[in-house]
């Protein structure tokens, strides 16, 4: 019992974080149809920003170098992490949304991710280079006198509150004409513009919002793990969040949370406790093959994911919600 509890608590905490991330990515990919192939870079931005805001100045003689080190109290680092990640998301979006093809956004995000990775790795003065930042204290742990090995005792409640908040925002969007308009952009941008929707601004807004949510997830990650370095945001990580969204049900907030439970809680956390066979990299490699294969199979055989896109209708005189189902492969000619 005493050994199992931390294991489950850790897995649970990761599921909370990934549920938050999935909701953010779902807003971009599932709802608005934006392909952002470097979502996890915004998680990293959030993690680093929250990390260096929570940490104090690098200890003299430690050889560590990073910017800021402001020692700010909870929850300011999380808020600022969201703002900075959202800001970068918006900047990236500004350069590409004027172009029509969704390929270009996907390409540019991928490139930006690689470059961000290079910059963080190579400029040691920014976030301590390849070694990354570490020793980030858990917020409120000292206030409540929680021992360092049990940081989940404060972080799980904090994470749940944030998840509830993020879910509420996403849910309100689902219920509003705003959410409907975002879906119209996904289904056909030209038609949306022809009916007065400012598609550029709306997509920009979703990029900012989704990336800000990624930043919050990153902040929680660094406060939970206590460390963050470049090896934590390789391209695979972005794919894992996509897997949660696609397997769970793009466009459905509860669906993607379910996806996060499956992908992060079952597959990834579960595989950590598999025995090592062969080389050290073999088990993760097989796990990634499974995730990649599942995503492709689900995209083909069940594009709605486990739970399809359903949304309650706002204007219906309070009778019922509509279950809306899509046919396979008919997500429309959203691209020109």
């Amino acid at each position: 019992m005493s050994t199992l509890l931390p294991i489950f608590a850790t897995a649970f905490m990761y599921v909370i974080i990934y549920a938050i991330l999935s909701i953010g990515l779902n807003l971009q990919y599932g709802v608005t149809g934006i392909v952002n192939f470097t979502y996890y870079t915004f998680v990293a931005i959030g993690a680093y920003v929250a990390g260096v805001l929570t940490l104090g100045k690098p200890p003299a003689g430690s050889g560590e170098t990073y910017i800021l080190g402001l020692n700010l109290p909870f929850p300011i680092p999380i808020v600022l992490a969201a703002l900075v990640a959202g800001l970068f998301g918006g900047l990236l979006a500004l350069t590409v949304f004027r172009r029509l093809r969704s390929d270009y956004l996907a390409i540019t995000t991928l490139c930006a991710g690689t470059v961000a990775f290079d910059i963080v790795t190579n400029s040691t003065g920014l976030f301590n280079g390849p070694n990354g930042i570490y020793g980030v204290p858990t917020p409120l742990a000292s206030t409540f006198g929680v021992p360092p090995q049990n940081t989940y005792m404060v972080l799980i409640p904090i994470g749940l509150v944030i998840l509830a908040l993020v879910w509420w925002v996403a849910h309100c969007i689902d219920l509003s004409p705003y959410g409907r308009t975002l879906r119209a952009i996904r289904e056909g941008r030209d038609a949306a513009a022809a009916f007065g929707k400012n598609t550029l601004r709306l997509q920009l807004g979703v990029m900012i919002l989704g990336c800000a949510i990624a930043g919050i997830g990153g902040a929680l990650t660094v406060e939970f793990v206590g460390a963050f370095n470049p090896s934590a945001f390789e391209t695979v990580e972005t794919f894992v969040v996509y897997a949660a969204v696609i397997l769970g049900g793009p466009g459905n907030n509860l669906g993607v949370i379910l996806g996060a439970v499956l992908v992060q809680g079952v597959i990834i956390q579960g595989s950590l406790y598999l025995p090592t066979i062969g080389a050290e990299s073999l088990v993760p490699a097989i796990r990634n093959m499974v995730i990649g294969g599942m995503v492709i199979l689900v995209l083909y055989f069940r594009p709605r994911g486990m739970v399809g896109e359903t949304r309650p209708q706002l204007g219906v005189p309070r009778r019922r919600g509509l279950g809306v189902r899509s046919a396979p492969g008919s997500r429309g000619e959203a691209d020109s």
């Binding site: 004409p177 409907r180 879906r183 056909g188 949306a192 896109e309 209708q313 809306v324 899509s326």
Partner: peptide, 12 residues
Amino acid sequence: WPNLTVIENVLL
């Protein structure tokens, strides 16, 4: 908008 309902198409 193919994957929105008919009334949603009008409401939009």
